[in-house]
Measured scan of single mutants.
Amino acid sequence: MATGGRRGAAAAPLLVAVAALLLGAAGHLYPGEVCPGMDIRNNLTRLHELENCSVIEGHLQILLMFKTRPEDFRDLSFPKLIMITDYLLLFRVYGLESLKDLFPNLTVIRGSRLFFNYALVIFEMVHLKELGLYNLMNITRGSVRIEKNNELCYLATIDWSRILDSVEDNYIVLNKDDNEECGDICPGTAKGKTNCPATVINGQFVERCWTHSHCQKVCPTICKSHGCTAEGLCCHSECLGNCSQPDDPTKCVACRNFYLDGRCVETCPPPYYHFQDWRCVNFSFCQDLHHKCKNSRRQGCHQYVIHNNKCIPECPSGYTMNSSNLLCTPCLGPCPKVCHLLEGEKTIDSVTSAQELRGCTVINGSLIINIRGGNNLAAELEANLGLIEEISGYLKIRRSYALVSLSFFRKLRLIRGETLEIGNYSFYALDNQNLRQLWDWSKHNLTITQGKLFFHYNPKLCLSEIHKMEEVSGTKGRQERNDIALKTNGDQASCENELLKFSYIRTSFDKI
């Protein structure tokens, strides 16, 4: 039985969820670079991206490699990797027998973001014989899940209580170790020597080791999670996991709180800001991140802002960003909400898709409305799209047979046209069989910064309504002859009103 693990408890099935942008060198404390989270699957090609990484700022997932063999891993080693800020997950990587050479110096898994409450997941690794993470000293947050690894031993010899604050939620089941077939031998045991430290858990006094050649490092209890030197002297209180010299914040392997210019500090002093819960960055760093993602459509890219001495992905609820200094300031009234469309555009074809934009005031991208039916549609669209004030790209209304009016965009005031449909149009209306009105132009103002209007096959939309939009939106004169079809717009509506004058002759039985 794995020490510190839980057996036999019912657990939810383990679901495996399925960018080499360097964020800056980590400095003297770390020998390499800070790398983003990685999802490495199918083959070993991307694994080489770990070569210079000291910190993975995010998670590391290595999974679904069915053609790899043990010899493929023999020359692979990433000794610079010290810390993973989120979680480490391995799933069905064939041929991998140990992690001792792959990650010989991995010391800390912070667990800032977890995989279903777990910071370390080893699942269905069919050839893994031992973990071998002999320098792993601290899992700051989260638990361990090690399950269905039929060859995995050296679990009962690990004292997880020396690595985690609590072992109650560890789930370590259905491994070879369960069948008591392992016969784990710690260093020196074969020669009758006791080389590794022994600890007591559940009444068992057991030597602690990761492999037959690597003991588990056990520091004096007084050192807590700070770690200790090879001689057993406690590291500085700002260290986490390990250090090369005692009581020196510049000799830590990793930091308990924050890293700044080669030393570990309790908090980031001005003019620095907390970033990702582990390091200090200056304003320029946060500003660069903001600008890199301002026009990016890459998933996970955030326009970072500053709030409460932190550089964070977005302002919290009730705050909006001051564009001059990136500071989050309290909103006066309802907060603006910028919604970034991942692929640059979004099609609204149902109430469900409209709900995804609920509360958005600025759309960074283009909207395509293609709704053919739905219950209580006008009210639903207004509830979900009615706060949109600005669209950076274009607005396209296409084959939306259920629409009679666009009044559900009740606050839309600006279409920038930074991206144009077919390279020309910022407003595009095609084949809307029941569209009769755009907006009530006596109450609604709309500016279209650039781009043209396109109207074709809107049989109940009168040309007068379209011409009014040209005047109000500032697009009059931009359109070419064929942009607004004269014969297919309003051709099934009563669009022309003329005053009919009647004269009559009164007659009676005795007068003409």
Rank of each mutant, 00 (worst) to 15 (best):
L81M: 03
C35W: 00
R92S: 06
N195G: 07
H28G: 01
C53E: 00
I62P: 00
N170A: 07
I62Q: 00
V108R: 11
H302E: 09
C153V: 01
R263M: 07
I201V: 07
H291R: 05
C186L: 02
K148I: 01
E147P: 00
H214C: 05
G203N: 14
P70R: 13
R110G: 11
V218A: 09
N117T: 03
P269H: 12
C35K: 00
N138P: 00
E151A: 07
L120E: 00
K80A: 12
A190K: 08
P220W: 01
C335F: 04
T229A: 07
Y118A: 02
N308P: 03
N295P: 03
L120W: 01
L44Y: 08
Q287V: 05
Q216L: 02
E124Y: 06
V144I: 06
C264P: 01
N195H: 06
N195S: 13
V55S: 02
L136W: 00
P249V: 04
P249T: 12
S324T: 08
C286Y: 03
N242M: 06
S213L: 12
R256N: 03
N202L: 04
C255W: 00
W160N: 01
P269S: 04
I56F: 00
G241F: 01
I306T: 04
V121D: 00
K310G: 03
A190P: 08
Q204W: 07
Y134G: 06
D261N: 09
D165W: 09
L260Q: 04
D72F: 06
R110P: 00
I163R: 00
I158N: 01
L106F: 02
L102V: 10
D165Y: 04
S77N: 11
G95A: 09
D288T: 11
C252K: 01
S77V: 09
L89R: 00
L155K: 01
T189N: 05
L102M: 15
M321L: 02
K176T: 05
C228S: 02
D277K: 03
R141N: 02
C234M: 01
P187D: 06
E147I: 15
N308E: 08
F116N: 03
L136A: 01
P70Y: 03
H274L: 15
E71N: 13
F205A: 02
S324Y: 03
M137T: 04
P334Q: 06
C209P: 01
C239S: 00
L155V: 13
C255I: 00
R41A: 02
E151G: 09
A190G: 13
L136Y: 00
R69M: 06
N325P: 08
C196Y: 02
P36R: 12
S166V: 09
P334D: 11
L240I: 07
S324V: 07
D159C: 02
C328G: 00
G111A: 04
E180F: 07
N309A: 10
L136F: 11
I62D: 01
M137L: 09
L114W: 02
C255V: 00
Y134A: 10
G262W: 02
P36G: 15
P104D: 00
F103K: 01
K191N: 15
M38K: 11
P313N: 04
D75A: 12
S161R: 03
E238Y: 07
Y134H: 01
D261W: 13
T68S: 06
V305C: 15
S225G: 06
R297F: 06
T45C: 15
C315E: 00
L99P: 01
K148H: 04
N149P: 00
R46E: 13
A230K: 15
L90E: 00
A198G: 02
S284L: 10
N308C: 02
T189C: 09
L81T: 13
I62W: 06
T140P: 06
K193C: 13
T140S: 09
G318T: 03
D75K: 14
D159R: 02
I185C: 14
C239T: 01
